[in-house]
């Protein structure tokens, strides 16, 4: 059987999936670590507020959330590729078709 070349969409999808999973891991480690260190067992007296948010909520959640949103915009506009999804005619109404 002559080897066929790997599908272009598969290649780009895999590359994108890897970046996304790395992003998820980074976000998880940052947010959970930051909030664990600065957000647990505090009192209101030693709390400062950033734009009305408790300091640890702002730096541990709101700030990375904003960064992730900006990253998502960049990723979708400048990193993800476009490929044709292929022929859409293969929709059998029953199961007699061999596909």
């Amino acid at each position: 059987m002559p080897p066929r070349e790997e599908d272009a969409l598969l290649r780009s999808a895999r590359r994108e999936a890897i970046v996304i999973v790395v992003l998820w891991a980074v976000a998880l480690v940052y947010t959970v670590t930051y909030c664990a260190l600065y957000g647990y067992d505090r009192t209101i007296d030693d709390m400062t507020f950033v734009f009305g948010f408790p300091d640890w909520v702002f730096w541990g959640v709101i700030f990375p959330w904003t960064l992730c949103t900006v990253f998502t915009w960049w990723f979708c506009n400048f990193f993800m590729g476009d490929e044709p999804l292929g022929d859409d005619s293969k929709v059998p109404d029953d199961f007699t078709d061999d596909f």
Binding site: E16, A17, I20, V21, L23, W24, A27, L28, T31, V32, C35, G39, V57, G60, V61, P64, W65, C68, T69, T72, F75, C76, M80
Partner: peptide, 15 residues
């Protein structure tokens, strides 16, 4: 913090 995972959900669930 409970909901914070949503910051990456658009990419992970669709991408």
């Amino acid at each position: 913090v409970w909901i914070a995972g949503y910051m990456v959900v658009p990419l992970t669930s669709l991408g």
